[in-house]
Amino acid sequence: MRTLRQLALPLALIVLWEILVALSGSPRAPRPSTTALKAVEMLADGTLLAALATSLGRVFGGFVLATLLAVPLGLAMGTLPVVERNLDPLVESFRPIAAIAILPLVILWIGTGNLAAVTIVAYAAFFPILINTIAGVKRIDRSLIRAARTMGISPLTRLRTVVLPAALPSILVGMRIGLGIAWTAIIAAELAVGAKAGTSGGIGQMMFVFYAYSIQLSGIVVCMAAVGLVAMLLDRGLRALLARAFPWSHP
């Protein structure tokens, strides 16, 4: 009974959507039925999965790069007040600038290839990971650090055995946020490059090509559903993976 209540509104909206488009008589407007057929077609000929693979590869590249840069920097800024005080103005100046806003500069400097896409993703994911790493280090129980110091553990060992594990839950939260933002950023970048500067590949450009060159727009809706599904799977997947790898933390 409860499942029925939960399904009622989405189903009603899908039916309404089908009827409204049928009544409007617009040949281009996508409908649920044409979308379902298009989805089957795009899955069968492999185009959808190929576009998703391109975008996902860029996201992972950029995400790994962002993590490798942001976590060490965040650990340094969190543990050493001198570093934090001096770098904070730069971080706070660039953080409010969305990744997509620097796209024109990235195109100018790097072009529109994979490296440019990875750069955009890395920029987008960098700040959430950095901010959460700093916050995680600062929230560590002082007595842990003092105990380690009393026991004569060297600063580097302390970082590895005390600071990093204690800050990990917060770092992982930052990574989850960063991955979500990275996925949005790559779609925006592919879309914008596809719309303005030629080919970019990936799911974002695929959507724009459907808009610009096809008679029937159901392909766009298939891409949108794929974007949502991947976003959900990335979040769930990363959460499950991290819970498995670090059972003591709850990202």
């Binding site: 879309l191 974002g204 808009y211 766009i220 891409c223 949502g228």
Partner: peptide, 18 residues
């Protein structure tokens, strides 16, 4: 709930072509 959870992961930016 289901409607929100279905639409939320679709980034606003992905709506641009439609």
């Amino acid at each position: 709930d289901l409607l929100v959870e279905m639409l939320r992961p679709v980034a606003g930016i992905a709506w641009i072509p439609l």
